[in-house]
């Protein structure tokens, strides 16, 4: 096989590999996560969450707070741009406990853990629906 022909074969193989790799890396906007903003009340259990909000969801945590579970009665939820129509399906998994696992950042996770029951809070962040994890951006008490 001539050098030119060998070079052409290698180039073709590399191109094929790149094509396969790029196909495997195909992504959609949903893969980047779902930006969400929620308002609601932190409470002690599911029953209370269902009572104070339209629906109760639970937050789990990682690290030192891996055994902590916070219940949240959601009264409002919207996706990026203010879309409320698709927000429920993003956050509400009544049968999953926790519905969302907070994966950081640590200071906001600690802030969410430390807020008392009864606190009205605005929580914002990015949700990965497949892993049901949430990266916090805002934990803001409302009163």
């Amino acid at each position: 096989m001539s050098t030119t022909r060998r070079t052409a074969c290698i180039a073709a193989a590399l191109a094929a590999l790149l094509a396969v790799a790029s196909r495997g890396m195909a992504w959609s906007p949903a893969d980047l996560g779902t930006v969400i903003s929620m308002q609601g009340t932190l409470v002690r259990d599911k029953r209370a969450a269902d009572a104070v909000g339209w629906g109760g969801i639970s937050f789990g945590f990682t690290g030192d707070n891996v055994r902590t579970l916070r219940w949240f009665g959601v009264v409002h939820a919207s996706l990026f741009g203010g879309n409320t129509f698709d927000a429920k399906s993003a956050v509400f998994r009544a049968h999953d406990v926790p519905a969302l696992t907070v994966v950081g950042p640590p200071e906001l996770a600690r802030k969410l853990v430390a807020l008392p029951d009864g606190a009205k809070v605005q929580i914002e962040g990015v949700i990965d629906r497949r892993s049901r994890t949430m990266l916090l951006d805002v934990v803001q008490p409302l009163e």
Binding site: Q39, T41, G53, W54, V75, H76, A77, S78, T84, F85, A87, K88, K120
Partner: peptide, 15 residues
């Protein structure tokens, strides 16, 4: 209903 807020955008009142 996915949202019900008053004129101050307060969902707690709407709920």
């Amino acid at each position: 209903v996915t949202s019900f807020v008053d004129w101050r955008q307060d969902p707690f009142v709407g709920r």
